[in-house]
Nucleic acid binder design. Structure first.
Lengths: 233, 233
DNA sequence: TAGATTGTTAATCGATTAACAATC
DNA sequence: TAGATTGTTAATCGATTAACAATC
């Protein structure tokens, strides 16, 4: 039931993707799937799928494969999305509202209990049934509503201070969209979503793709040139 | 000048973080830094820093360390953020607008040329000087404005169809926020930002932290119990 | 039973860390 | 020059892939 020894970060990172594909299989009405078939769909090796899943126990059956529905619920359990998580959003700008409006989060057990902002013009507004509050009420609200997770969608300048307040108020995890790293105690989880870093990685890949294209084009040209001269000679 | 052999994905993933820290060092007015000092700040090994940077050439100097400003501009060059990238945003909801409103992207050379949506009530609105257009104009706009990158902030149901249109129109990269994987040719870059997967990873980590806490508490209790009985005997 | 496919061990590959000679 | 710190090679560690016996 409890997770045995330390599972590698790479495995955890892949689990949600398995979960997504299993959900799609269920929608397609597929009842069972072999690691080989899933491997073809997901473009990972069948070996990796079996290895990954076996970190948590044997969910398959020799000669049969995996039962889609069973595996789906098991992964949900492993990820902890079969339980309810109370969540607040700090920063009610576009990003905060985007998160508030994504209904699927609630399907996965992430209940948005409140939103907070310092902008007086936003305070009092209601987004998807959730009222935007002033940041002063933060600590009390966290305790009263048993909030475990805070999404931090505020500018980086305010982030460290708010993070400290969240930690002191007993928050268990911070979903950090601020463009900075946070210093928190070891037992507080920080999951970073650094969009600017993601965009830079994309930039790198675009540029190296471009470089490769140019290199190949040059190579081709050189080859053709050599051939031409060969014909002339 | 051109990147030599294939650099590992892990190294690329770390570059933007180096860039961020170097930017902060510059703001603090620090001119030079050793791999050891940087290692302490960033909480990675000095060895890894030197190894990473040396993939792209020797930016440091023995006995001195690294010149912050020089390294900063070199990493910018490697990441390709010293050049201009023309970008469009498809999907002008909260997430699309959040991206449009993040001014730092433009500082890094990402120019938001246009926004698109199917919602007629959004079409014609202007976000940060960028007009929201109907999706019909997509192909023509991409060609006329030499758009290289498209941020896809639309529901997953529409994503594959739009991705196809983008590819046919000659887009070089897709920054994909839709909750699905995209099938594109090998020479089109896809950088995924799957927020729901990020939140599930956070969920896993919160739960296993909780498990660990409980395990430790139980252990402690057992030990204390044993001690008590020892005293009694 | 025979065929299929898992669970799991062993082999390979790649990434990180340690160590140190080169050199500023 | 002596001290500091890089660049780079070697050693270690971890993750992925291959292979196959177990078993449904």
């Amino acid at each position: 039931m409890a997770d045995q020894r330390q599972i590698s970060k790479a495995v955890i990172a892949r689990l949600p993707r398995y979960y997504r594909y299993l959900g799609e299989l269920m929608e397609e009405g597929i009842e069972r799937i072999s690691s080989n078939e899933l491997s073809a769909r997901m473009k990972v090796t069948a070996s990796q799928i079996r290895q990954d899943l076996n970190n948590f126990g044997g969910f398959g059956q020799q000669g049969y494969g995996y039962n889609v529905k069973y595996l789906y619920t098991e992964i949900a359990r492993i990820l902890g999305i079969d339980r309810q998580h109370n969540l607040i959003i700090i920063g009610a700008g576009n990003l905060g509202q985007a998160i508030a409006n994504y209904t699927n989060f609630e399907k996965r057990g992430f209940m948005i209990k409140g939103m907070f902002d310092i902008n007086p013009r936003l305070i009092g507004l209601v987004v998807r049934g959730v009222e935007i509050r002033g940041i002063d009420d933060l600590e009390q609200f966290i305790v009263e509503n048993e909030v475990q997770i805070a999404a931090l969608t505020i500018p980086k300048s305010k982030a460290p201070e708010i993070a400290d307040r969240l930690v002191k108020a007993g928050i268990k995890a911070i979903w950090n969209f601020a463009h900075t790293d946070l210093n928190v105690p070891d037992d507080v989880v920080v999951e970073n979503v650094h969009l600017s870093e993601s965009l830079m990685r994309l930039s790198y890949r675009v540029c190296s793709m471009q470089d490769e294209r140019e290199r190949k084009a040059k190579e081709k040209l050189a080859k053709e040139n050599a051939k031409m001269h060969g014909q002339e000679a």
